[in-house]
């Protein structure tokens, strides 16, 4: 390691580089380099600073790259059915789809990380603009299927031991709504939060059932639940600066309204 060579790479003089390093050392409050007759080497603090500096440079490069190829990103809640996601992403190319929880998508839309998002409502949406919504069709998956569930009584007898539901952290309002509706219907089954299909299969294998909003659970048998029984909706939200005429609403309504 040599200051002279470094200055040459940077295209500045060696005194200017030395001065810059001294200024840096004063700013960060520690020595970054050991200077000796044999040359210079990084202090332990300097090594730590180097790692942080490299990650900052990488972040800057990524930031610039995103700016150059700015593609609007759309958040899709975990519960969004695959078919609807596919229709949305095709209709809105070159949009980038990102799957996440409803709570995180609202937060990312508010901060501008995402342009728009499809979340499950009820959901808390401070600082974002609601554009459109459609009732979500819930399906109950179990080892054996049956007729669609239209009444509270049918729901009560369909859900007996355990029911796999979305984790509370994904959307506390949704979790409260589902819990309240199940209690209203007289369901006493234990609710088990599951994050993915394997965990849902776990519950079904024990003789329980799993609740989805249009997602498939291969190997299990479905029973549709009447929309009025759970009261959940898919909601299109946008950053307040997003114009509703940008095609977002039309694509959303085609993807989610198609099965009405």
């Amino acid at each position: 390691m040599h200051f002279g060579q470094a200055a040459e790479v940077l295209g500045i003089s060696q005194p200017a580089l030395s001065q810059a390093i001294r200024t840096l050392e004063v700013e960060v409050g520690c020595r970054v380099f050991n200077r000796s007759a044999g040359g210079v080497s990084l202090t332990p603090e300097g090594q730590a600073a180097l790692m942080r500096a490299r990650s900052l440079l990488r972040a800057e490069a990524e930031f610039i790259a995103v700016g150059q190829h700015a593609v609007p990103a759309m958040g899709l809640a975990h519960e969004v059915p695959g078919l609807a996601a596919s229709m949305l992403l095709r209709a809105l190319q070159p949009v980038t789809g990102r799957q996440n929880s409803s709570a995180q998508i609202v937060s990312d839309v508010r901060s501008g990380t995402l342009a728009v998002g499809v979340v499950v409502s009820p959901v808390l949406m401070p600082g974002v603009k609601p554009l459109s919504s459609f009732p979500a069709t819930a399906t109950l998956w179990a080892q054996s299927g049956g007729e669609p569930i239209r009444t509270a009584g049918e729901l009560r007898s369909a859900v007996v031991s355990e029911i796999a539901v979305a984790p509370r952290a994904w959307n506390p309002a949704q979790a409260q709504e589902v819990q309240d509706r199940l209690r209203q219907a007289g369901v006493i089954a234990r609710s088990v939060p599951v994050e993915n299909a394997v965990e849902a299969h776990d519950v079904v294998a024990r003789g329980g059932c799993a609740l989805t909003l249009g997602g498939e659970l291969p190997g299990c048998e479905p029973r549709m639940i009447d929309r009025s029984l759970l009261g959940l909706r898919f909601q299109l939200i946008a950053h307040p600066s997003i114009d509703a005429d940008g095609g977002w609403v039309q694509a959303f309504e085609t993807a989610f309204g198609g099965d009405q």
């Binding site: 409502s121 009820p122 959901v123 808390l124 949406m125 309002a173 409260q176 709504e177 309240d180």
Partner: peptide, 10 residues
């Protein structure tokens, strides 16, 4: 609240 329910103990 994000919800419309009348009963909202939380």
């Amino acid at each position: 609240s994000a919800r419309a329910a009348q009963e909202q103990p939380l």
